[in-house]
Computed example of a mutant assay.
Amino acid sequence: MAEYDEAARRLTLKLVYYGPAASGKTTNLMRLHDALQPELKGEIMTLETHNDRTLFFDMLPLGFRAPSGLLIKFKLFTVPGQVAHDGTRKAVLSRADGVVFVADSQRSQALNNGLSFENLADNAARVGLDFDALPLVVQFNKRDLPDILSEAEITARWAGARWPLTFACALSGVGVAETLRRLLASLYERLAVQYHLDSEHRLSREAFVALSTGRVS
């Protein structure tokens, strides 16, 4: 959940990249870090082991100031993909303000995607998040690989879902910024009501998204 420090005039938000092992969660964060303007980002931290690329988390702090002077900071995390680290997944997911679910577009990974998404829903409930109200974007990554599900197939399969879909190739950066922008646009609707971003801090949804991403292309 958002952390609001009134005395320091600071709002800190937590965004989590979730998904099956090797779907491209860490690569998304690396591409964002590469593209963001220097003043918006801190150092990216990665903890790795021999059997999972992100045993604990990657964290990419970034932020900006609203016209009112309110400092809005984001902490971006990824969870480990392997089932053996489910306890860590829950710990990282706890108190998240928004989630990007990174799916693997390869046909062979359809089952893993489904199981991981179910795990996300289950773990959200376990850590006290309202999954139905949680800002969430589903990204289908690895669009550059052979034998992938077409956009039409994916769209048809997710036709009944309420979550926005994006398509990406995180290695090249295609779709990475767009995914984050879609999540931020959804997140703004919740924050605007609770923290009066528009009326008190003169921050529209468009400005919130643009300033958060530093107009990353």
Score class of each variant (00 low, 15 high):
111 L>T: 14
96 A>K: 01
83 V>S: 05
44 I>S: 08
132 D>H: 12
46 T>I: 15
44 I>T: 14
132 D>C: 06
102 V>C: 04
58 D>A: 03
33 H>N: 15
17 Y>D: 00
60 L>N: 03
76 L>V: 09
98 G>H: 02
48 E>H: 09
114 G>D: 12
20 P>C: 06
90 K>A: 15
80 P>W: 07
64 F>G: 03
34 D>L: 10
98 G>E: 02
80 P>I: 02
83 V>P: 03
84 A>P: 00
137 V>H: 07
123 N>Y: 09
83 V>N: 06
91 A>E: 05
24 G>T: 09
40 L>Y: 11
17 Y>R: 00
39 E>L: 09
72 I>V: 14
122 D>N: 13
56 F>Q: 14
16 V>W: 00
46 T>L: 10
16 V>Q: 00
104 D>G: 13
81 G>T: 05
102 V>E: 03
115 L>T: 11
106 Q>Y: 09
66 A>C: 12
137 V>W: 11
48 E>R: 08
74 F>K: 06
56 F>D: 13
109 Q>D: 04
135 P>N: 07
110 A>F: 05
21 A>D: 01
131 F>P: 07
114 G>H: 06
68 S>K: 12
100 V>H: 01
56 F>M: 10
125 A>S: 10
63 G>L: 07
113 N>E: 05
50 H>M: 10
96 A>M: 02
122 D>M: 11
53 R>M: 03
68 S>Y: 15
130 D>A: 03
75 K>S: 08
107 R>P: 00
40 L>C: 08
131 F>M: 13
131 F>S: 10
100 V>Y: 10
45 M>Y: 11
62 L>A: 12
90 K>W: 06
94 S>D: 08
62 L>K: 10
51 N>K: 14
87 G>T: 10
16 V>S: 00
94 S>C: 11
45 M>W: 10
132 D>N: 11
33 H>P: 04
119 N>T: 14
41 K>P: 08
99 V>L: 13
83 V>G: 02
101 F>W: 12
112 N>C: 07
56 F>T: 15
70 L>V: 05
101 F>S: 04
120 L>S: 09
46 T>M: 11
38 P>G: 05
63 G>V: 04
28 N>I: 08
23 S>Y: 04
98 G>Y: 03
20 P>H: 07
89 R>N: 06
77 F>E: 04
115 L>I: 05
41 K>A: 13
27 T>M: 10
71 L>Q: 12
85 H>F: 15
124 A>D: 01
124 A>T: 05
90 K>R: 15
112 N>L: 13
86 D>M: 07
31 R>M: 12
26 T>L: 10
94 S>G: 04
117 F>S: 01
